Amino acid sequence: IRCIGVSNRDFVEGMSGGTWVDVVLEHGGCVTVMAQDKPTVDIELVTTTVSNMAEVRSYCYEASISDMASDSRCPTQGEAYLDKQSDTQYVCKRTLVDRGWGNGCGLFGKGSLVTCAKFTCSKKMTGKSIQPENLEYRIMLSVHGSQHSGMIVNDTGYETDENRAKVEVTPNSPRAEATLGGFGSLGLDCEPRTGLDFSDLYYLTMNNKHWLVHKEWFHDIPLPWHAGADTGTPHWNNKEALVEFKDAHAKRQTVVVLGSQEGAVHTALAGALEAEMDGAKGKLFSGHLKCRLKMDKLRLKGVSYSLCTAAFTFTKVPAETLHGTVTVEVQYAGTDGPCKIPVQMAVDMQTLTPVGRLITANPVITESTENSKMMLELDPPFGDSYIVIGVGDKKITHHWHRSGSTIGKAFEATVRGAKRMAVLGDTAWDFGSVGGVFNSLGKGIHQIFGAAFKSLFGGMSWFSQILIGTLLVWLGLNTKNGSISLTCLALGGVMIFLSTAVSA
C-alpha cells in the first residue's frame, strides 16, 4: 500500500470489461488503480535517471590570480610587451599612462603600459546536455494484498515479495511487465516523455548541487567559461569578468580578483528545477510519464477462499488518510488461513446495510499462523458509518465519521480527471477507425466523469442509474429551450454510458 502517505494521489477506475487503462505517473504523486474483478494496485514513479550526459560548457565562479607582471614604455618608444601576453592562462590589459620627467621619461606624453596576471579557477559549475534516449524511469508497484503497516513504502525485498514489484522503462524499451506472483502480471506500455523539453534544458552542477536550467539563461551567464570537458589546462574565455584592473600608474597597475560568485548564482537559480546525482547518473524529480496498463493477466487472489471465522482485533486505531479513506490494521487469532476477511461498512448496526467501498479488493489472510496481521483500506461514505470486521458474535466494529460532501468530492474528481486527460493529450485517442474513435470517446468520458459518477451514484443499482439517464434524455427531447435540451441530452447520455461502463 504505497499511496496512503502521498498527498498527491489519483484514483483511476477501469471500465467494466476493459483490459487496459491509461494513467499519468508523476514525481511526488501516486496512482491507485481499481477495476472490477482485479486486485487494487498502487503505482508510483520513484526516480527518473539520466546517463551519458555530455559537458557543454563550464563557468568559473571563484578564481585566484598570481605571478603579476607589468612592462611600460616612454612616449615614442613603441608598445610595451610581455611574453605572458601569448599565454592563455594569463589575463592581460594594455593601456596608456601619462609619462614625463617625473617618472623617468625625457618627453612628456602618453606611454604604453601592459599588465598580466595568471588566472586560476578555484571553483566552477558545469552544464551538461541531456539526450531523451538516455532517460530511465523506475516504477514501483504494490498490490493491496496481505501486507501490514511495516511494509508500507518499503522498497527492500521486492524481489521475493509477490505484493510488490519494480520495473524500469526507457525510450528504447518502453514496454515492461511486472510479475506479482499469485496476482498474475501487469503489463506497462509507457510513452517516455517527461513533459520537459530537454532540447531547451541543461543539467547544471555547482558545488555538489544540481538544477535543470534553460539553455539561453545558461549561455548568457557573465562569467569566465570554457567549452567542452575539462582537459586539465582549460582555456578560459572572458577571464576579465572576475578580474579587475585598478587605476594605472606610470610603471605598474594593481590587479585584484573578485570574490566568489556562488551567492549571486544561487539567487539567479531561484525557482529552477532541482535535481540530484546518483553516482555518474543524474536524478530528476520533475515531469511525468504516461503509461497504458494492460490488466488482462491480472487476477484476484483468494476468490475461492472461505470466510475467516475466528476473532479479529484492531492492532491500531483506524486512521484517516490524506485522501479521506480509512486504513485499518487487524490481527487474526485463527489458524484456518488462508481465508477471506469479512469486512464491510454499514450505516447502522441493526440492518448492516453496506455503504462505501473497499479500496483493498478481496482482502485475505494468507498465513495459517496465529496472530497474522493484515492492513486494508476503505472508502467510507460522508457522515457517520460503522466499520464491521468478522462474522457472528466475534465481529468487531468501529464508529467512523467522514466530513465533507459527495458533491465536493465529485467536483474534485472531475477536475482531476480533466487534468489527466489534458496530460494524456492525443495519445488517449485513436482515429484509425470508426470503432477506435468511439472507443476513445468512451475512454475520455470515463477518465473525466467516472470518479464523479461513482461518488454521486455508486450506491444505486445499474438499472436505477439507466432509468435516471433515460429520464434526462426524455426531458431533453421534450424541452423547447435549446440549451436546457442539449444539457439534459448530454447528461442523460453520459449517465447511461457510465452506468453500463463503470464497474460497481
Rank of each mutant, 00 (worst) to 15 (best):
V6G: 04
N8R: 00
V12S: 02
S16L: 08
S16P: 02
S16K: 02
G18K: 00
W20L: 00
V21F: 06
V23C: 03
V23Q: 08
E26K: 13
G29N: 00
V33G: 05
P39H: 03
P39E: 07
L45I: 13
L45Y: 10
L45F: 05
V50Q: 04
N52T: 01
M53N: 04
V56Y: 03
R57N: 05
S58C: 01
Y59N: 10
Y61T: 14
E62P: 00
A63W: 12
I65W: 04
I65C: 02
I65N: 02
I65M: 13
A69H: 10
C74V: 07
E79R: 06
A80F: 11
L82D: 08
D83K: 01
D87R: 03
T88I: 14
K93P: 00
G111P: 01
L113V: 10
V114A: 13
S122L: 14
S122A: 15
P132L: 15
E133P: 02
N134H: 07
E136L: 06
V143K: 05
H144R: 11
S146L: 00
Q147I: 02
S149P: 15
S149E: 00
V153C: 05
D155L: 00
D155R: 03
N163E: 04
A165C: 13
K166S: 15
K166N: 10
V167K: 04
E177D: 12
G181E: 15
F183H: 09
G187H: 01
D189Q: 08
L196R: 01
D197N: 12
S199R: 03
D200Q: 01
Y202D: 07
Y203T: 10
W211H: 08
E216H: 05
H219A: 12
D220F: 08
P222S: 12
P224Y: 10
T231G: 12
T231I: 10
T231P: 09
T231E: 11
G232N: 14
T233W: 06
P234L: 15
H235V: 14
E244W: 03
K246Y: 03
A248G: 13
Q253P: 01
V256I: 15
L258I: 03
E262I: 10
T267E: 05
L269Q: 10
L273E: 04
L273P: 12
E274N: 06
K283N: 14
S286E: 15
H288S: 02
K290C: 06
L293K: 04
L293V: 12
K294E: 14
M295L: 12
K297D: 04
R299P: 05
C308A: 05
F312C: 12
F314C: 02
P318D: 06
A319E: 02
E320C: 02
L322I: 14
L322D: 05
V326N: 03
T327S: 14
Q331H: 04
Y332Q: 09
P338R: 00
M345S: 00
V355H: 07
G356T: 02
L358W: 10
V364S: 00
E367D: 15
E367S: 14
T369K: 02
K373N: 14
M374L: 15
E377M: 08
P381M: 08
I387R: 01
I389M: 12
K395M: 14
T397P: 00
H399C: 07
R402N: 11
S405F: 09
I407T: 12
F411G: 02
E412A: 07
A413F: 14
V415A: 06
V415R: 01
R416C: 04
K419D: 09
A422V: 15
V423W: 05
L424R: 05
L424T: 05
G425H: 09
D430E: 08
G435C: 01
S440F: 05
K443N: 14
G444H: 11
I445W: 11
I445R: 00
I448C: 10
F449I: 06
L456I: 14
F457R: 06
G458K: 07
M460W: 09
S461R: 13
S461E: 01
G469T: 11
L471M: 12
G476K: 06
N478K: 13
N478I: 10
T479M: 15
G482W: 12
L486M: 07
F497Y: 14
F497N: 12
S499P: 03
S499E: 10
